[in-house]
Amino acid sequence: MSISRRTLLKLVGLTALGVTAEKYVSVHAGSTSAKLVAKAIGAGKRLAGTKPAQKVRLAMVVDLRKCVSEQGCTKCIDACNKAHNIPDFGESKDEIKWIWKEPYQDAFLDQENFYMKDEFKNKKVPVFCNSCDNPPCVEVCPTQATFKRDDGIVMIDWHRCIGCRYCMAACPYGSRSFNWRDPRPFIKDINPDFPTRMKGVVEKCTWCDERVSQGLSPICVDVCPGKALVFGNLNDPGSEVRQLLKDNFSIRRKPGLGTSPEIYYLV
């Protein structure tokens, strides 16, 4: 035998290291694999201008004075559930939620407001993923499956998520859901334009990144009958969100944690 078992094992180990290193480089050097593919087929450059312009920080303003969720309006939730193939398991253990309503006092646990009007005390606050500017979920994710886009949207790469659920432990807003079982049989009417998920991955509201990439607003914003939801670029001084924040007093959920949530509630 010219090559000993040990030497062979060492070689295999080194090759494995090399492969890992190549993968690492390909991810961190701005998709080398993209360049490789482009080179292989001799493809030209990508279209200019498809990348979101710099200095965009998307944000959402929820005007609770206009929101009529306490009257049973669930238009935003229904539209979202339908657009994103969110299953209905009929029980809370496996539940998946992107947008849902919480009583005012629970959504703003650290705001102790007494002697409010009943109307406000019973207010149901729509809650979403806050797409934090300093997202703890992104910080803890061991595979970068959850990440922040240039425009501020916090996303999940469902192809990469290993289902460790560290992000769920890290999210201070309880915004994340896990697919405890195969969701497909529990989706009444599948929207073919949006993927369903598989068991074992985490999901959450992504501010309709698929619509935002096409220059549209999130679907909840579009369907809100009272125009209570406003979506826009916080870095644009002329945007509607900036105007609203200038003219009104706004609160955010748990700002003291330093996560910088990007959903502002007007009360």
Binding site: I41, G42, A43, T50, K51, P52, R149, D150, Q214
Partner: peptide, 8 residues
């Protein structure tokens, strides 16, 4: 967040 691919 890119949308288009320009081909050979």
């Amino acid at each position: 967040g890119e949308t288009y691919f320009s081909s050979d």
